[in-house]
């Protein structure tokens, strides 16, 4: 069976869903169910007595087959990300950690140096480290070498909906990588997710594309179908491109070529 392998974990779904930016938690939970996602990201936030109902741990844990992947959003240094990872593991009991260190709220580009350092430390400690990175083949290789479970290069800026702007670099990362490559960030449409899968990505992570859709649960389902179709196409093997036309029908019946 074709499954996504991350550490000793296997997943039949190759769609990872983020839980931010939904209009409310009911819609978010519906979207998670509709997506069939088995790996779902969450963020750490300070407890607030007035907003106790915002806590997602209980509702998400009640969905069967869900593994949580907390992120380190809010951290701007490796030390902060490591600290967030420890707290998140305490809460989730999950070994997965999405290392996400973006110091500049204007563009949210990940800091490669702090990300590398946090990933190195956390992988050594036994976490299944999923670093969110720019589409940089050299950094991706270095992260593989220090024991990350995957690399998660961005398709374009977080929440931008600009799609696979980095596809040239993604192709290099996919070709060179021996760990799963998961496109994270920037996707807007299911066709882009299918494209990423056809390129050979092992999974895609979407959040805004679903959360900001007109109907998030239906969009979640559309992404699930697109990811499955793209994976199927990749496994089937796409035809070679040709510089010129290649006939699919015989040309000798009436014509006089």
């Amino acid at each position: 069976m074709d499954v996504l392998k991350l550490g000793s974990y296997t997943f039949s779904s190759r769609l990872i869903l983020g839980t931010g930016k939904f209009s409310n938690s009911r819609v978010m939970l519906e979207a998670v169910r509709a997506s069939g996602a088995q790996l779902v990201t969450v963020a750490l936030r300070r407890f607030n007595r007035q907003q106790a109902e915002d806590d997602l741990f209980g509702p998400l844990s009640s969905i069967e087959g869900i593994t949580l992947m907390p992120n380190t959003s809010g951290a701007s240094t490796a030390a902060e990300a490591v600290r967030a990872a420890h707290i998140a593991r305490e809460l989730s009991g999950s070994p997965f950690i999405k290392v996400e260190i973006h110091p500049n709220p204007q563009h949210l580009m990940p800091d490669p140096i702090e990300t590398f350092e946090a990933a190195r430390i956390l992988a050594k400690e036994g976490f299944l480290v999923m670093p969110y990175i720019a589409a940089d083949p050299v950094l991706a290789k270095r992260l593989e070498e220090v024991g990350c479970a995957s690399v998660m290069p961005l398709g374009s800026a977080i929440g931008s909906g600009q799609g696979l702007a980095t596809s040239e670099m993604l192709n290099i990362i996919i070709r060179e990588s021996t760990i799963p490559v998961i496109v994270d960030a920037g996707l807007r449409s299911p066709s882009e997710a299918a494209h990423a899968m056809e390129m050979g990505c092992e999974a895609v992570l979407v959040n805004s594309a679903v959360a900001a859709a007109g109907n998030p649960p239906v969009m979640a389902e559309a992404f699930a179908e697109a990811v499955a179709a793209g994976r199927k196409a990749f496994m089937a093997g796409l035809m070679e491109k040709s510089g010129s036309a290649v006939a699919t029908s015989p040309l000798t019946f009436l014509g006089t070529y």
Binding site: T19, G20, K21, L44
Partner: peptide, 10 residues
């Protein structure tokens, strides 16, 4: 003292 919970995030 810090108290932290899981909230929505991508």
């Amino acid at each position: 003292v810090e108290l932290l919970i899981f909230a929505g995030g991508g």
